[in-house]
Write a protein that binds this DNA or RNA. Structure first.
Length: 667
RNA sequence: GGCGGUGUAGCUCAGGUGGUUAGAGCGACGGUCUCAUAAUCCGUAGGUCGUUGGUUCGAGUCCAACCGCCGCCA
């Protein structure tokens, strides 16, 4: 039996999951489902990347031990995948014991093979990005974040990456499909050609990581640690390597374009050094942009998958991402486009075709699939449908194998359209009114032909829209679509007399308010506010589908006393304004970047009428640090700046007369 | 700066090796049917194919320069 091992990247737990993560995971899930339907012994891995100084810092900022923080965020990822119906076979956490053992085994193997040595690094280092910066001059800005680097001199372990330059170049040329799409391959090749230097693979400046075997003062560099998950999850380095032996090497590592270098250069080099087989293929997709902009935490334009899930369902999100975006290129997400696709293709397309076809079979043939009458009732239009269906099966397969999801779906939907047209041209409802035998035979043929084409489309697109197709399959009376053998799919398998189930719509049409509902949910779900901008009237609670008809009761009651516990729930910290600028299109808002001592936050505050942005830079302010993020004018505000506001007067920022360290808590 | 990519209808995209009036889907507009989820189906409008110059009998398709956007350069 053919095996198929596919992986997502493991997601970094310094932020909550959003549709960017969902995009990668959905694409993998679709591939995995398809391979299973084709009969491959499939193993689908995802997980979370939990070590590194960023995570340590995020945990400290959240006032929690890193173990607790990573448990929470990792669980959030897992929960989202479960809600989206992701069929992962394993979920690896880099903080797990099995991973640690595997990483250490891999390290030892590479070391024993002579590719690790201890050396010194002196130069410039960005502690925020764990990045060595070689550009000249002390304090040179970090290319990632722009913060000044620190001059360091430290003892590290190094990986002899330079020894693999020729081998890697040979790999890329002998296996042109190793990296896809081609543009990424070109980048990697030119990178490697320009020369490889040895790679520092340990850190001693922080503790949150896998200890280096034999030298616990060092932890394993986060990328060596993270990449290893693809083998440690299979039991590499454990007592039971049977899964490793069965599934390794991976058939496909699916990744985002930002991590191409790690996967296409470092990872194969590590594996070569350890004497392990290399993955067969690495596929990089593009970024999901939100209305033309990169989705990022600091921009505050992140869209959560949950919102779409609640309003339109998981299939809608899956279909949109795979149909709308050319895989490999950047794609744009917007609620308008999502609803448009949903209505045009899902509700009016496959949903309506299923509804009309199955309803007519129910009505005219008492819910039993009629047999296409031979001879007299047979026409060339029927043949045309049969032919295009058979052709679609073959072409769909080939497009999917090339990861051309959008074109594969386009193809499937052109079959839907031609069946709709076929139905209109053959007017089965007219035939149904005529009581003669000839019309009856013709009706049977038309409905069989339509139903059979629908069945084929349903089977083809099941990996993409699993829930709806499962329901259509059931309505067809065909049982469990999950066990259907896709490799056998061909015209004519629909049996005479198949008893239909209850027919009901699978994709109810969405009206225009769906867009608004999703936007509102996104803006309100992460509830947070800046002092001066905080609306005094309570807004409807988030997470609910409907806007409540009755206004919410006033949230504050006069003279209400709170306990000390209530007060300590509010985490106020001292921060320094690093960046202040006006928010375009808003008179009152300023966008601030505030340094809380170890973490820089974006805060949007309604103080533009009271303070000129340039006067705020360098000023110490008080930030409510544990407010849920909130979006204002499309920007995410991660906290609230504390100000006194007299009735009708301008807000006045709280500040200190004495000097205070950044990050100090107010209590 | 070096290397690479990209720019085609309002939107998302097709357009091997240059060859009649540049295509599809969606959206918009008009019409039609009634089995179906105000769905389907038919029709209409919309593009100096980033700009300029060149090669050619002929260029969206080849070449050059320029403009815009993007990626990689540890």
């Amino acid at each position: 039996m053919k095996k198929f091992y596919i992986t997502t990247p493991i997601y970094y737990v310094n932020a909550r999951p959003h549709i960017g993560h969902a995009y990668t995971t959905i694409a993998c899930d679709t591939m995995a489902r398809r391979q299973r339907m084709l009969g491959a012994d499939t193993f689908f891995l995802t997980g979370t990347d939990e070590y590194g100084v960023h995570v340590e810092r995020a945990a400290i900022a959240a006032g929690r031990p890193p173990e607790q923080w990573t448990d929470e965020v990792s669980a959030a990822f897992r929960q989202l995948w479960d809600r989206l119906g992701i069929t992962y076979d394993d979920f690896i956490r880099t903080t797990s014991e099995r991973h640690k053992r595997g990483v250490q085994a891999l390290w030892s193997k590479i070391r024993d093979n002579g590719f690790i040595y201890k050396g010194h690094y002196s130069g410039h280092y960005c502690i925020y990005d764990e990045l060595y910066v070689d550009s000249a001059g002390p304090g040179a800005p970090c290319p990632e974040c722009g913060r000044p680097t620190e001059t360091v001199q430290e003892e590290n372990y190094f990986f002899r990456l330079s020894a693999f330059q020729e081998k890697l170049l040979r790999l890329y040329s002998e296996q042109p499909d190793f990296i896809r799409p081609e543009t990424r391959r070109n980048e990697v090749v030119s990178f490697v050609r320009s020369g490889l230097r040895d790679l520092s693979i340990s850190r001693s400046s922080f503790k949150w990581g896998v200890p280096v075997p034999g030298d616990p003062g060092h932890v394993v560099y986060v990328w060596l640690d993270a990449l290893s998950n693809y083998v440690t999850a299979l039991g590499y380095g454990s007592e039971d390597p049977s899964r490793f032996e069965k599934y390794w090497p991976a058939d496909l590592h699916m990744i985002g374009k930002e991590i191409v270098r790690f996967h296409c250069v470092y990872w194969p080099a590590f594996l070569m050094a350890a004497g392990l087989p290399l993955p067969k293929s690495i596929l990089a997709h593009g970024w999901l942009l939100f209305e033309e902009n990169k989705m990022s935490k600091s921009r505050g334009n992140i869209v959560r998958a949950e919102t779409i899930l609640e309003v339109l369902g998981g299939d809608a999100l899956r279909y949109f991402l795979l149909r709308e975006i050319v895989f490999g290129q950047d794609g744009s997400f917007s609620f308008d486009a999502l609803v448009q696709r949903y209505n045009a293709d899902l509700a009016n397309g496959i949903g309506n075709l299923a509804s009309r076809t199955l309803t007519m079979i129910t009505r005219y043939f008492h819910g039993e699939v009629p047999y296409p009458s031979p001879a007299a009732a047979h026409q060339t239009a029927d043949d045309a449908i049969r032919k295009s269906a058979n052709q679609a099966i073959a072409e769909y397969q080939s497009l999917f194998d090339q990861y051309q999801f959008s074109r594969a779906l386009e193809l499937a939907w052109s079959l839907v359209a031609s069946v709709d047209k076929y139905i209109v041209e053959n007017e089965p409802w007219v035939l149904g009114e005529e009581a003669n035998e000839q019309s009856r035979a013709r009706l049977a043929t038309v409905l069989y032909t339509s139903a059979e084409a629908l069945r084929i489309v349903t089977a083809l697109v099941h990996p993409v829209i699993p829930q709806a197709t499962r329901r259509i399959w059931t309505q067809f009376g065909l049982g469990n679509i999950g066990t259907f053998d896709l490799s056998s799919l061909k015209w004519g398998q629909l049996q005479l007399g198949t008893k239909l189930g209850k027919v009901e719509p699978v994709f109810p049409r969405a009206d225009k308010s769906a867009v608004e509902r999703m936007q509102t949910m996104e803006e309100e779900a992460p509830r947070a506010a800046t002092a001066a901008e905080a609306p005094s009237q309570a807004k409807p609670s988030a997470g609910s589908h409907r806007t409540p008809a009755v206004p919410s009761p006033p949230s504050a009651v006069a003279n209400h006393k709170i306990s000390i516990d209530d007060f300590t729930k509010v985490e106020m910290r001292v921060g320094e304004v690093k960046v202040a600028e006006r928010v375009q299109g808003a008179d009152k808002l300023l966008r601030l970047e505030v340094d809380l001592g170890g973490e820089v936050r974006q805060v949007v505050a309604g103080i533009a009428e009271a303070y000129a942005p340039e006067t705020l830079i360098g000023r110490k302010v008080v930030i409510v640090a544990n407010l849920a993020p909130r979006k204002l004018r499309g920007l995410e505000s991660n906290g609230m700046i504390v100000a006194a506001s007299a009735e009708g007067g301008r807000p006045v920022l709280a500040s200190f007369l004495e000097d205070v360290p950044l990050g100090a808590r107010l209590k």
